[in-house]
Design a protein around this nucleic acid. Structure first.
Length: 222
DNA sequence: TCAATCTGCTCCGGAGATGC
DNA sequence: GCATCTCCGGAGCAGATTGA
């Protein structure tokens, strides 16, 4: 570990600006978030997350689950049929769907016929429903309220209580929705190892805590 | 032309090892 | 003894490629 002397935000920013051509070019990339067809700043993005309907969150989770380990283009091409098959991911309708119906839909070639992944739609709908009942808030509000300084906590929650939302699936889905989260891509992992912020397994508690601390530090410095 | 095989990609879970 | 970590094989399907 090299926690005493990791790269500062200033040095990282300078290096990134050189790589992207100029400070301005980098700021264009960093300054706003693209959500759907909209370009939003951080405050607007946060508002966007809080106002999402829960069916869109279930749709995002499901899309990412099917993309995981598969050609993303195929999932995108078939997505309109997914929306149609699963009632636009309406939570109540999904929870009322009998197993036989789910099994039948999972055999339709219009969608990706992976029954194990199809089953996650209902399971994750149940997780979302439970939270809205327990906390009396929408699932979107639940995600929005979770502090970005402990985003690994939200990852762990989704992994434990949801289905197939572990690994990078949960983080990717959260980012797709507009939640402020980092992604442990291979490039990011290589950087973290080069900076000696982590040395063991990427998903170990020790590593995740160190990574979160580093991102929190960068956020404070930025 | 058709069938078989390969490729792409990552979560999941089990087993054994390690640390506290 | 329990929790956590690490490693590895299995699972899943569409599209591309290869061979008969």
């Amino acid at each position: 570990m090299n926690l005493n002397n990791p790269e500062t935000f200033k040095a990282l920013f300078k290096r990134a600006a050189e790589r992207k051509g100029s400070v301005r070019a980098l700021e264009v990339l960093l300054g706003k978030k693209i959500l759907g067809k909209k370009l939003l700043d951080d405050t607007a993005a946060q508002q966007y997350v809080a106002e999402l309907s829960d069916d869109r969150i279930l749709a995002a989770f499901t899309k990412q689950i099917f993309k995981s380990g598969f050609v993303w283009r195929v999932v995108e091409n078939k997505w309109p049929d997914f929306e149609e098959h699963f009632f636009n991911f309406n939570i109540e309708k999904m929870l009322m769907m009998p197993e036989e119906m789910l099994e039948r839909k999972a055999a339709d070639p219009k969608i990706i016929r992976n029954y194990n992944k199809v089953k996650t739609i209902k399971a994750n709908a149940q997780m979302m429903f439970d939270i809205t009942m327990d906390k009396n808030i929408s699932f979107a509000q639940f995600i929005n309220d979770w502090p970005s300084e402990d985003i690994i906590g939200l990852w762990a929650y989704l992994k434990k209580h949801g289905q197939r939302l572990g690994g990078n699936t949960g983080p990717y889905a959260l980012r797709l929705l507009g939640k402020d989260t980092f992604i442990l891509s291979s490039d990011v992992e290589a950087y973290l190892r080069a900076q000696q912020i982590i040395d063991g397994g990427l998903q170990s508690k020790k590593s995740l805590t160190a990574i979160q601390a580093h991102f929190n530090k960068l956020k404070t410095e930025s």
